Amino acid sequence: MMAQPRFAIGEIVHHLKFDYRGVIIDVDAQYSGSEAWYEQVARSRPPKDAPWYHVLVDGAMHSTYVAERHLEAGDSSQQIEHPALGQFFDRFSSGRYHRRGMN
């Protein structure tokens, strides 16, 4: 049985190892990247059968793909800055981002 994701699209998170904030733009119930990427990048070998998240990194131009065990709830009192925010979200309220076309 797969674990339920702890975080949802639009939530602000903090990366425990690399100390950055970001906002979740997509959730995979389990790892869906390539074996080569996992071998090269996921050095701590996080579990593949737990949730993974696509995250826009605050103050950067890129996004990351992160295992749930490396994330915690982030400071949601401040918005993040990322040039792609508008592609995914149309507003920020109550400490989270809201997807385009969703209430």
Results as ranks from 00 to 15, higher is better:
residue 85 L to A: 09
residue 86 G to H: 11
residue 100 R to S: 08
residue 80 I to L: 09
residue 29 A to W: 04
residue 86 G to L: 08
residue 77 S to T: 15
residue 77 S to F: 12
residue 87 Q to D: 08
residue 16 L to R: 10
residue 49 D to G: 05
residue 74 G to E: 07
residue 68 E to M: 06
residue 23 V to G: 01
residue 27 V to M: 00
residue 56 L to F: 04
residue 61 M to P: 07
residue 98 H to M: 06
residue 46 P to Y: 08
residue 89 F to G: 03
residue 59 G to V: 06
residue 12 I to L: 03
residue 52 W to K: 05
residue 21 R to F: 12
residue 82 H to N: 13
residue 103 N to P: 11
residue 33 G to E: 00
residue 76 S to F: 06
residue 48 K to A: 05
residue 89 F to C: 05
residue 47 P to A: 14
residue 84 A to Q: 13
residue 32 S to M: 10
residue 19 D to F: 08
residue 60 A to C: 13
residue 94 S to N: 15
residue 36 A to T: 14
residue 101 G to W: 04
residue 23 V to L: 01
residue 48 K to R: 13
residue 4 Q to V: 10
residue 45 R to T: 14
residue 99 R to K: 15
residue 9 I to P: 02
residue 100 R to P: 01
residue 72 E to Y: 07
residue 32 S to K: 09
residue 12 I to M: 01
residue 24 I to C: 00
residue 26 D to H: 14
residue 27 V to Y: 01
residue 18 F to L: 12
residue 24 I to R: 00
residue 87 Q to H: 07
residue 22 G to F: 01
residue 17 K to L: 10
residue 59 G to K: 06
residue 87 Q to A: 07
residue 11 E to P: 00
residue 13 V to H: 02
residue 89 F to A: 09
residue 83 P to R: 15
residue 99 R to I: 04
residue 25 I to S: 03
residue 28 D to E: 11
residue 20 Y to E: 03
residue 39 E to L: 11
residue 43 R to Y: 08
residue 73 A to V: 09
residue 65 Y to K: 10
residue 17 K to A: 11
residue 5 P to S: 06
residue 53 Y to T: 05
residue 72 E to N: 13
residue 70 H to C: 13
residue 102 M to K: 15
residue 58 D to K: 08
residue 74 G to L: 09
residue 81 E to G: 12
residue 90 D to P: 00
residue 11 E to W: 01
residue 37 W to I: 12
residue 68 E to Q: 14
residue 103 N to R: 14
residue 74 G to V: 06
residue 8 A to H: 09
residue 39 E to D: 14
residue 18 F to P: 00
residue 92 F to E: 02
residue 95 G to W: 02
residue 5 P to L: 06
residue 36 A to H: 11
residue 74 G to S: 09
residue 17 K to P: 00
residue 60 A to K: 14
residue 40 Q to W: 10
residue 10 G to A: 03
residue 70 H to I: 10
residue 85 L to Q: 07
residue 1 M to D: 11
residue 76 S to Y: 03
residue 79 Q to A: 13
residue 38 Y to V: 07
residue 55 V to W: 02
residue 62 H to S: 10
residue 54 H to I: 07
residue 11 E to G: 02
residue 58 D to I: 12
residue 19 D to W: 08
residue 64 T to G: 06
residue 67 A to D: 06
residue 32 S to A: 09
residue 20 Y to M: 04
residue 103 N to E: 15
residue 74 G to M: 07
residue 9 I to C: 06
residue 97 Y to W: 07
residue 18 F to H: 12
residue 22 G to C: 00
residue 34 S to E: 09
residue 1 M to I: 12
residue 40 Q to V: 11
